[in-house]
């Protein structure tokens, strides 16, 4: 079974087509990146896959469940770390995680176990009793991802997880994301080329709501006739692809 599948997925807002007939297939355990400039349709795609927005046309499935007709089932299979950190600022790290445990219906014992497990996995022991608003950007992103993992999702959506972070915090977060690879399917959106290059099993380059190229890094380099993802991306975005 595919972790994520879209068939002709389309989202229109009045005159604007944000996502235009997107066809994707993501295998379980894969780290799949959606790469594109601002407004390429990455976040809209994530929103539709997370049941946060209904498609205008087409279908989207997560672990075989429809994102339009089986929303409750899909919501229990996914976790999302939105573009902003989306944490409760006056709650501590531990309280934020405990809160999400209760949202997923865990009892007290399981909540405490799961919270302790995630604090350890993300190395947050030294900040576990700090309020979220006092954390640095990097710690907040880690907390945000940990909160997305509370419900033991099959598919994790990371929407521009390193946006606005300094280089050290970004590298630290990459290591965190890499540690999750293979254990869970990850759909990552980013417009940082080196991030997609470093982390992804496969990459889809989105231009104006469409998939302009899809494959592994070497496949994309081959399609574009360029070396390195940034050069390949520019070539594809400018329509200079090798046929």
């Amino acid at each position: 079974m595919l972790a994520v599948e879209t068939k002709g997925l389309t989202k229109r807002y009045k005159d604007l087509t944000a996502v235009d007939g997107l066809d994707l297939s993501v295998e379980q355990g894969e780290l799949f990146s959606l790469l594109g400039v601002n407004g390429a349709g990455k976040t809209t795609t994530i929103r539709m896959l997370c049941c946060l927005s209904d498609p205008t046309e087409g279908e989207a499935y997560v672990m075989g469940k429809s994102c339009t007709s089986e929303k409750t089932e899909v919501k229990s299979l996914i976790g999302i770390s939105p573009q902003d950190t989306a944490v409760s600022n006056r709650l501590t790290v531990k309280e934020n995680l405990m809160f999400m445990c209760r949202v997923y219906g865990f009892d007290r014992k399981k909540s405490e176990e799961r919270t302790a497990e995630l604090i350890e996995t993300f190395g947050m022991q030294k900040v576990e009793n700090s309020r979220a608003k006092t954390l640095s950007g990097g710690w907040k992103r880690k907390l945000s991802i940990a909160m997305a993992l509370i419900g033991e999702p099959k598919v994790l959506f990371l929407d521009e997880p390193t946006l606005g972070l300094d280089v050290l915090a970004r590298r630290e977060l990459w290591r965190t994301i890499e540690s999750l690879k293979g254990k869970i399917t990850i759909i990552l959106t980013t417009h940082y080329m080196e991030e997609a290059e470093q982390l992804s099993d496969r990459i889809a380059i989105m231009i104006e709501g469409k998939t302009a190229a899809l494959g592994t890094l070497s496949e994309i380099e081959k399609i574009s006739g360029e070396t390195g993802l940034e050069n390949a991306f520019v070539a594809i975005a400018e329509g200079r692809m090798h046929k």
Partner: peptide, 8 residues
């Protein structure tokens, strides 16, 4: 938005 994507 995070909560909308949960069973809440």
């Amino acid at each position: 938005m995070r909560l909308y994507a949960t069973p809440m």
